[in-house]
Design a binder for these strands. Structure first.
Lengths: 342, 342
DNA sequence: GAAATTTGCGTAGATGTTTGCTCTATCCTT
DNA sequence: AAGGATAGAGCAAACATCTACGCAAATTTC
């Protein structure tokens, strides 16, 4: 009964051959004869032999494990990224270990530690919201474990990263609103130390400038991008002497909050105020009216991130210049911002 | 420069002491003097020493790894379950390895293999839709690795499992609709070979019976539970000579479809037709009106599953009778089914 | 038919940790 | 001063696997 894990040694003993022969037979090594291989495979099946990855890994210095850390796995975006990661990694023969930082640096540090001691061969990270320093990642680099960031990257750091062109996304959305005839476009944004929010805002600013529209401080609302923040932001905007005619939010959640507040005031979307969000969350096509949003190609991002990691892994050493992959976002125009009839 | 992973042996050599002393010092063993410990810790830091879990695991016969397999990680439900799993597992000092079966038995088999060879100490599984035989899991049991199923379980098998009481959920929702004054309640359900849908439907039937309401064939709509199916189902219902005054759907997606169709016909929710769904998807509180739904306590399910697993792990051997945890669902009444004013 | 090559398999470490046992000083009792 | 207790640290085996090297036998080559 006792945890009867059969090892390669047990097989060898029972067959009266050496462990090395068994090892080679199991991995279908050419220098083992067919009859011997078959004997080994047969017994292996009978004893429910299970190759021990830890022992093999120890010997070969490989774990076949990739570490993934996300702020949280709920929500559309990270879920889809993880899905992309798992799919590609699994195809490449890697298993993935998942951690959540819960948007907290302390957790992040602890998790990095876990991943390292689990001997992962590479790490994929999207930063927690309050991560400002880089020390815990330096440790990873010192151990020369490939590190790829995705989506949320610390600014000014020369690291491997897969991001979408947030600026372009912000630009497209804003330009679209302008094209619909909006002239006072407000913007809800998140913590500005995060590249994603800063860049989306930059895209917004670029579009305004391109069309000669003034940038007004009062139309910029910085918050944490929750639904409630959207409500607050909208209240703020409605209280202005001259209210905006459109809102571009860097998050779908706060744009929904904004919409709810508008309905409470019996204002019409998009006629009174047009709305556009960011992320293409599932619910954006279920609201009334449906919400215009910028799709982040989340699954593709996960796939790209793994592929980049695998590439680095393959090259090992030699080429150390960090690479950056930039994906193009995709503006999905829906009813919440459609003012012109065709 | 070369992959300079410092091992315990390196530390020992540099300090001129034995590896065992270093090992014990690192784990703060009482029989090592403070000065020695401090020396070891100091050097460990300097050399970026990283304990090798694989080696330790090999030696101790433990991996600190839990395997998780879900049909897919997109969608609210499994995401939240995984979140719950990760949270609890991480607190208990376990890392988790995630696999997706992609609703496919073949994948499922392959993944189980991966998990086993990664030496996971326990496995959590929600079955793929087309899994009908149990062979790949027998292998797990033979190796005496604790196995806990959640949500999707194979019928008639005596295994550890955490599920919700779907019947109770269906019953509660239907009873609530009746209490609101509805008398012709339609039901949208999914494939009847899946016990979740069968049980929700049973709850619906039980409630009708309890209140002496007739069960009418034409009010039962079986589909695949997509949003589009909801639209179709609603069209079907509206075409009836006597239309229903409420709909209970076993999925939130199809209830949204139903609502969209109602709006197209300028019918009011809930005054003309009241609506209730199942799963408490994120978007249910973002629609207008908000949707009544049955919460599946997904995160709690993940947590319970891990806790059950840990319990089994702790007891090891001895007690082998499989346990089953049944969680109570939670009806969340929202505007889409609130007819009575207080 | 001798030399060269190939085939099939075993020997002997080596991977990084942990841990039961052992050994040596030192200090405390009597 | 002898005996024992204790603290501190080392030795070596064990975990399951892999692989460079070696060697004998079988096969090919000229």
């Amino acid at each position: 009964m006792a945890r009867a894990k059969a090892s390669i040694t047990d097989l060898a003993k029972q067959l009266g051959i050496s462990v090395s022969t068994v090892s080679r037979a199991l991995s279908d090594h050419p220098s083992i004869s067919d009859p011997t291989k078959k004997k080994v495979w047969k017994l292996a099946k009978e004893l429910h032999y299970q190759p021990n990855h830890m022992a093999a890994g120890l010997r070969k210095g490989r774990s076949n494990l990739l570490g993934v850390m996300v702020p949280h796995i709920d929500g559309h975006f990270f879920t889809m990224v993880v899905k992309g990661i798992e799919t590609v990694a699994s195809k490449a023969g890697f298993n993935i270990m998942i951690c959540q930082s819960n948007e907290d640096v302390a957790h992040e540090r602890k998790n990095i530690e876990s991943l390292l001691s689990a001997q992962v061969e590479g790490i994929l990270v999207s930063l927690a919201r309050n991560t400002l320093d880089f020390k815990h990642f330096e440790k990873v680099q010192k151990q020369e474990i490939p590190l790829v960031f995705f989506d949320r990257v610390l600014d000014g750091l020369d690291v491997n990263a897969v991001v979408i062109d947030d600026r372009a996304g912000g630009y497209q959305a804003t330009k679209h609103l302008i094209a619909q005839g909006c002239r006072r476009i407000a913007h809800f944004s998140g913590p500005q130390h995060l590249n994603i929010y800063k860049n989306r805002r930059q895209g917004y600013l670029d579009a305004l400038q391109e069309y000669g529209l003034p940038v007004e401080e009062e139309l910029l609302f910085i918050c944490d991008m929750t639904l409630e923040d959207g409500v607050t932001g909208m209240q703020h905007m409605l209280a202005l002497p001259q209210r905006p005619d459109a809102i571009f939010s860097a998050s779908d959640f706060s744009i929904v909050g904004a919409m709810q507040e508008l309905k409470r005031h019996h204002l019409r979307v998009p006629q009174d105020i047009a709305l556009a969000g960011f992320s293409n969350e599932t619910f954006t096509s279920l609201t009334e009216p449906m919400l215009t949003s910028v799709d982040q190609r989340c699954e593709q991002m996960g796939q790209s991130a793994v592929r980049l990691l695998l590439e680095i892994l393959r090259e090992s050493s030699t080429n150390f210049s960090p690479r950056r992959v930039v994906l193009q976002p995709d503006l999905l125009v829906r009813a919440s911002s459609t003012l012109k009839k065709k």
